[in-house]
């Protein structure tokens, strides 16, 4: 019965086609490029207007909460990037000194305006105990 089969195939194609279309349009809205701090700096003007994700270690003592925004710096391979968090919602509690942070947002004039920040304290939880210090963990 070819007509019946045809109906099923048409239905399936319709569903898969719409899903694909949604996937492509959703992808354009949500995509963000991962960059390291040094890659970002060498991108120059190309970095502007693109949604980016930058990762690095939070520079100790750099987190400053001001009215309306929180500022901090992340570093990677001795390169430092100032980040200004202007997103909605509180910053994750895991954003502390020396945490691994991932900021998503836009790059403008040497500073990064983040709308989303993730952080994990990998340095704290997974770091090896100092092999030379018999006294135990630093801190």
């Amino acid at each position: 019965m070819p007509t019946k089969k045809l109906k099923f195939i048409a239905g399936t194609a319709l569903i898969l086609g719409s899903v694909l279309w949604l996937a492509i349009s959703g992808f354009e809205e949500g995509k963000a490029y991962y960059q390291t701090v040094s890659e970002l700096k060498s991108m120059g003007s190309r970095a502007e207007g693109v949604r980016l994700r930058v990762g690095g270690i939070v520079v100790p003592g750099s987190i400053v909460r001001r009215e309306g925004a929180v500022e901090f710096q992340i570093s990677q391979d001795n390169q430092i990037l100032p980040v200004r968090y202007v997103g909605k919602g509180p910053l994750p509690d895991t954003l502390v000194d020396r945490a691994e942070a991932l900021a998503e947002g836009h790059y403008r004039d040497g500073s990064f305006e983040a709308s989303m920040v993730q952080a994990k304290c990998a340095s704290k939880y997974e770091a090896a105990y100092g092999e030379s210090s018999e006294a135990g963990p630093e801190s």
Binding site: I15, A23, K31, A32, Y33, Y34
Partner: peptide, 30 residues
């Protein structure tokens, strides 16, 4: 996607919640 894009294009690209919502909200309603 970040893993695939890095393996294929050498560029790590992530897709955020808009991607997931855009697809899964209509699927969920169906």
């Amino acid at each position: 996607f970040p893993v695939f894009s890095e393996a294929i294009q050498g560029e790590r690209v992530s897709v955020g919640p808009p991607f997931f919502n855009k697809i899964n909200v209509p699927i969920g309603l169906l």
